[in-house]
Structure formats: C-alpha cells, structure tokens
Design a protein around this nucleic acid. Structure first.
Length: 315
DNA sequence: CGGTTTTGACCAGCGC
DNA sequence: GCGCTGGTCAAAACCG
C-alpha cells in the first residue's frame, strides 16, 4: 500500500502519537560519546542461540525517513536473551538529550536490566508467556493448553531486542511485513504503545513501538522472537514495511530511498567503531572480530543480527 | 475483496 | 481478593 508509507510519514510530521514505557530509560544501555554512524538500512537475521527458546532469526532494520539520521548501540541481556540497541540521531541532538531522561552517562554503557527488577523483564515474561500461548491456542486445542501451563510456569522468554531510535518515524521500516494488533496507553506517558506482529505465516515475531515521553524524538522499537523466514521482497511487503533492500533502489515510492542509495555509510566499520558502543553479548558468540568491542562476541552477534549491514551492501 | 488498522473488551500477572 | 497494568483478541471500519 503506497498509502502506508505516505500515511506513516504524514503521521510523523504532523503528530506526536507514539509511546513510551519504562523500558527505555530503565533498561536500555547507556550510550554516549561521539559517533559517526548513519543508520541507513539494517535488515538482519539474528542467530538462533540468543536464547534457548529462540528459533529462526530476528529480522529488523531501520529505514528512517530522510529527515532522520541515526545510529545505534545494541546490547543483549544475556540472561533473558534481550538484545538492545540504542540509537540516536547525532545530527540533531547531543547524546545527553538522546539518552532520554538523563539515562546517558558520558563514556558509560549500561547493560540491560537485571532479571528481577527490570520492567522490560516483567513485560517480556508476560509477553512470551501469554501471547505465545494465545497464539498456540489459536492453532490447536488441549495440547496447547498444556503447553500454556508449562510456558507460563517456566516463563520462557523470547529473545528481545530494543532499539532507541531518534527518528520522526514511529514505525521504522525494517523490510518485514507487520500487522498492528493492538495499541495501549502507556503508564506515565502521553504516547501509546503499538503492537505489531509479523504477517508471515508461522512467524511469531512481534514488535512494539513506542515513543519516549522523555524525549519524544526517540522511538523505542522492541522486537521479540526471531523471524523464521527471509525478508519479504514482494512489492506489497515493500509498501507495508518498507521495501526489502533489493526493492529500494528501484523504488521511488519510498521516502527513504535516499538511505538505500547510500548504504555504505552504515558499514560495520563505521557502525561499531565507537568505543562507546557496547553490547552485552551472548557468550556463545566467542570469536573476536573487532577488538573494540567490549566482548569478543559482540561483533559476531551483531553480525548475525544485522547481516545486511555487514554483507549485503552491494547489489 | 483481501488485507490492515482501530479500538473496546478481555485476560493474566503482579503488588498491595 | 482487588485493582492496576500490559498484552492480546476480535469485530468493525477502513483502504486501495
């Protein structure tokens, strides 16, 4: 739907819809310091061993509107399989502003929350439990009910990725097709939170989009679970969730095409060079690729999460 | 007409 | 037990 993109953008420019919850300021890592990144297009598939319960791959990326320039710093909550990426538009604001509520401390990186205290944790547990079982219930009967109980008890958590993105665009294009299935007001925030589900059959990936009330220019996008399919390349999907990388160059429909035409600015080199970027990565990824990462595994993990960033740039 | 969005209702977990 | 909150459902509305 060409109107999708159109409406989306109109939306961004004319309103302050959006959402916030405690996730960002409470749990997203502190990131600060200078950066030169320019997040143009990220579409990825994340390795499956972020969490024991995870399968398939994340897929996400940003194709912010042309007015947005951003970078991200991701991190993973090892224990919960959370992966967070903090992004901000360096061209518009200083890091402290981007930090949202003073979350940023110079030269400091905070790793995603503790298992018991984090709001995101709580939500995540709820989410992976309830939503998962509901979806299962949709597919079947008593068997699912049994699993429901098990999963509720175990509170298995899907890996989750959160990005703080400084952008006017609420629903960041990531190449996948999403269907909005809910919107909720967020406590202590004037901005609602939107819930999206991947429209691909049997793909349980969900994402939440909300805007920080502390810094309305920051959009918090949280992906949950991992895509078990490649990024749709159909015209339709492109219209809905942003063209897949291959679509962009030929597409004049999207206002973000400018970014696609300059993917190089978002290379692995530039993306992760900052000494301030840091991730708390899954220990399974033990391979040094970039000595500037705090953990040797960071690079590998990120590479898995953003393959397009690392590999796909050229046609 | 098929797919998406909207939105009120519902449910489950948690804290008091 | 109750209320609050987050997350999801599902019917209706919407759109190309």
């Amino acid at each position: 739907m060409s109107n999708e993109t159109k409406d989306l953008n109109n939306y961004h420019y004319t309103s302050s819809y959006n959402h916030y919850n405690n996730i960002d300021s409470e749990n997203l890592p502190y990131v600060s310091g200078p950066c030169t990144y320019n997040a143009n297009m990220i579409s990825s598939q994340i390795g499956s061993d972020l969490h024991s319960s995870s399968q398939g791959a994340f897929g996400f990326g940003f194709v912010p509107s042309a007015s947005s320039s951003e970078f991200f710093n991701p991190s993973i909550d090892q224990e919960n399989g959370f992966y967070n990426a903090y992004s901000y538009n360096t061209s518009l604001k200083s890091p402290e502003v981007v930090g949202g509520g003073g979350a940023i401390i110079e030269n400091e990186t905070r790793v995603f929350g503790s298992p018991s205290s984090s709001e995101a944790d709580h939500h995540h547990g709820e989410d992976s439990g309830k939503s998962l079982m509901k979806r299962e219930a949709d597919d079947g009967g008593d068997e699912q009910r049994t699993q429901k109980v098990i999963k509720t008890k175990k509170k298995i958590r899907e890996p989750r990725v959160s990005f703080m993105t400084k952008t006017e665009v609420d629903h960041l294009e990531d190449g996948y097709r999403w269907r909005k299935y809910g919107q909720k007001a967020v406590k202590n925030s004037p901005y609602p939170r939107s819930y999206y589900r991947c429209t691909t059959q049997k793909c349980n990936v969900k994402k939440r989009v909300e805007r920080s009330y502390q810094d309305p220019t920051v959009v918090i996008t949280t992906y949950e679970s991992q895509h078990n399919h490649p990024i749709p390349t159909t015209r339709r999907s492109a219209m809905f969730s942003g063209p897949a990388a291959s679509d962009y160059k030929s597409s004049s429909l999207s206002p973000v095409s400018d970014f696609i035409n300059t993917p190089r600015s978002f290379s692995n080199d530039s993306l992760f060079r900052s000494p301030y970027s840091s991730v708390n990565a899954n220990p399974n990824y033990q391979q040094q690729q970039n000595h500037e990462f705090q953990h040797d595994s960071d690079y590998e993990l990120l590479k898995d999460m953003f393959p397009s960033v690392f590999f796909k740039q050229e046609p």
